[in-house]
Every structure is written in structure tokens, then in C-alpha cells.
Simulated scan of single mutants.
Amino acid sequence: MEASPHPGLAVAAPRARAAGLPGGRALLGLVLPLALALGWEAAVRAGLAQGRLVPPPSRVLGTLWGLAATGELWVHVTASLVRVATGFGFGALAGIAVGALTGTLPLARRLLDPSLQALRAIPSIAWVPLFILWFGIFETSKVTLIAVGVFFPVYLGVAGAIASVDRKLVEVGRVFRLTRPALARRILLPAVLPAAVVALRTGLGLGFMFVAAAELLGASEGLGYLLLDGQQLGKPDQIVAAIIAFAVLGKLCDAVLVALTRPLARWQDTARETL
């Protein structure tokens, strides 16, 4: 029997087939958290750890089940999700618009970018007193804080992607005498989209971080409020349950965003597909 001229490919093929199985990659991603959870559960049950400050997974799951059974969990999840979605929408649209403006117009970049970079360095918590003073303690201040958190990574990603477009591609478009709208649609937009998608995902992650900060500082519902309530009542199982709910909700939203934006970059032929 003749040996394969490329033994590495023979080894990689079954691996690629296994990774391509339906749900195979998702299940593989659960190995580490499940191993950690089972290990901590075993340590607590064996008496190697108390589990008082960091409760075992069985107690956390019981808390989640109880919150879900009463409907309280869904109220908090819905409140946080609506705030993140609204703030992400406003922040992402503003970030894309301003990033495209400063990325394509040198005058706008010199005029706006220094101020935006200075504002980006301000800690998120520093905006809270000002937003509460301007908008009160209700939804407007929370959504505005989330939008600010989303705006800056999206702005940087879009502006940086436009600035890093290969000059030769633009020159080719000019050789073919493309108009400015055609140049933007056929060359700039496809070149910018992959980096813009990454910026949107980063902004979405920061949106969940900012909603936690907003809800910790004044809310009657939301996962951030659930965290604060668990701290005040001395319930570490509720705190961990809220953290897990944040993680699951954030991951699901990120997966939805990736699925919605995947067709925009389908033309790419990247090395990731073969690794």
C-alpha cells in the first residue's frame, strides 16, 4: 500500500470532519467550563472546599431554576437585553457614521479624532453622575451609557479599517474610472466589512459590561440589579447565577450577530477555513 505523500493532511482530515459535524464545535467549546464546574462540584462534595463564597454548580443551577420557575429571571433578562439592544443600536450607528466620516475625509479626521480619542480615555463610571444629572435615573441614562460604551470601539474599528485599505486597490478603482459612490461600494466597503464586524462584536461585548455598570447604579430590574441584590442579601449563589446568565446571554447575542453578518464577508478566502 502506497504511503500518503502528505501524512499531515491524512491526520488533519478526520479532525476537520469531526469539527465539521453538526454542533461539534459548540460541544467542544463546552468541554472546559463543564470540566471546571464538575471539578469544583467534586471538590465541594469531597470536603476539599467549603463552597460558601463560591457555591458549587448544583446550588447555582438550583438558584437559576428557582428564578426561572417564578419568572423573575426572564424579567431581569428581558430588561437587560432591551437596554443592550437599544444602546447597541444607537452606539453602533453613530460609531459607523463618525468612523466613516473621519476615515474618508482628512479634514474631519483632524477636526474630530483628537477630541474623540480624549473622550475615549474617560472611565465609563465617570459618565454616570453626569448622565443621571442630565437624564435622571431612568432608562434614558442607562441606554446613553451603553451607547457611549459601544460607540468608541465601533468608531475606532471602522475608521481604522478605512484608513488601512490598500492604496493599490483604490488606485485600481481610479484606473477603471469608478465614481466615488462606486469606489466606496465596490472597493472600500468589501475591504472594510471584516474589520467592521469585529468592531461590532467588540462593541456588543462592551455593551454588556456597561449595562451591568448602569444597573448596579440604579435599577429595579435587570441582571445587574440581580447581582447587587445578591451582594446586599449575602447570596453568592444568586451572584454567580447572574454572572452565568450574563455570560450565556452575551454569547447568544454574539452568535446572532455573527450569523447575521457572516454573509457580508462570505467572499473572503481566509486561512482560518483550512486550520
Score class of each variant (00 low, 15 high):
residue 192 V to Y: 01
residue 209 M to E: 15
residue 191 A to G: 04
residue 167 R to V: 13
residue 164 S to Y: 05
residue 215 E to H: 09
residue 210 F to G: 00
residue 179 T to K: 02
residue 181 P to V: 02
residue 206 L to V: 11
residue 190 P to I: 14
residue 193 L to V: 15
residue 203 G to H: 06
residue 194 P to I: 03
residue 189 L to G: 04
residue 214 A to T: 15
residue 164 S to G: 12
residue 169 L to P: 00
residue 170 V to K: 06
residue 219 A to E: 12
residue 162 I to N: 12
residue 179 T to A: 07
residue 196 A to V: 13
residue 192 V to R: 01
residue 166 D to S: 11
residue 162 I to Q: 12
residue 162 I to H: 12
residue 168 K to D: 15
residue 188 L to H: 04
residue 203 G to E: 06
residue 172 V to W: 09
residue 169 L to A: 01
residue 175 V to G: 10
residue 220 S to T: 13
residue 163 A to Y: 09
residue 182 A to K: 10
residue 219 A to N: 10
residue 173 G to E: 11
residue 192 V to H: 02
residue 190 P to Y: 13
residue 174 R to F: 04
residue 220 S to D: 15
residue 175 V to Q: 13
residue 164 S to T: 10
residue 179 T to E: 12
residue 199 A to Q: 04
residue 197 V to H: 04
residue 197 V to C: 08
residue 217 L to D: 01
residue 175 V to Y: 11
residue 222 G to P: 07
residue 175 V to D: 14
residue 165 V to S: 03
residue 218 G to K: 00
residue 189 L to K: 02
residue 193 L to N: 06
residue 223 L to D: 06
residue 196 A to N: 11
residue 218 G to R: 00
residue 176 F to R: 14
residue 206 L to R: 00
residue 177 R to D: 09
residue 176 F to L: 15
residue 165 V to H: 03
residue 186 R to F: 04
residue 191 A to I: 01
residue 195 A to K: 00
residue 201 R to Y: 04
residue 210 F to C: 05
residue 195 A to Q: 03
residue 165 V to R: 02
residue 181 P to R: 03
residue 175 V to H: 10
residue 221 E to V: 02
residue 163 A to F: 10
residue 162 I to V: 12
residue 189 L to W: 11
residue 193 L to S: 10
residue 168 K to T: 15
residue 182 A to N: 13
residue 192 V to G: 02
residue 187 I to E: 01
residue 223 L to I: 06
residue 169 L to W: 04
residue 197 V to P: 02
residue 188 L to F: 07
residue 185 R to Y: 05
residue 222 G to T: 07
residue 206 L to F: 05
residue 212 A to C: 05
residue 213 A to M: 09
residue 205 G to V: 08
residue 213 A to Y: 03
residue 202 T to Y: 01
residue 170 V to C: 05
residue 181 P to C: 05
residue 176 F to W: 15
residue 209 M to W: 10
residue 204 L to V: 07
residue 195 A to E: 02
residue 215 E to V: 14
residue 171 E to P: 07
residue 206 L to M: 04
residue 219 A to Y: 11
residue 186 R to L: 06
residue 178 L to Y: 14
residue 208 F to M: 00
residue 219 A to Q: 09
residue 213 A to C: 04
residue 201 R to E: 14
residue 205 G to D: 03
residue 183 L to K: 05
residue 206 L to K: 00
residue 215 E to M: 10
residue 211 V to L: 10
residue 209 M to H: 14
residue 162 I to C: 13
residue 168 K to I: 12
residue 208 F to A: 02
residue 207 G to M: 05
residue 182 A to C: 08
residue 187 I to K: 01
residue 193 L to M: 15
residue 224 G to K: 09
residue 203 G to N: 08
residue 196 A to W: 13
residue 203 G to D: 07
residue 171 E to D: 14
residue 202 T to N: 04
residue 223 L to M: 05
residue 193 L to F: 13
residue 192 V to K: 01
residue 198 V to M: 11
residue 181 P to F: 03
residue 207 G to S: 08
residue 203 G to T: 08
residue 215 E to F: 10
residue 207 G to Y: 06
residue 164 S to F: 05
residue 212 A to D: 02
residue 195 A to I: 00
residue 176 F to S: 15
residue 222 G to S: 07
residue 195 A to P: 00
residue 205 G to Q: 02
residue 170 V to Q: 10
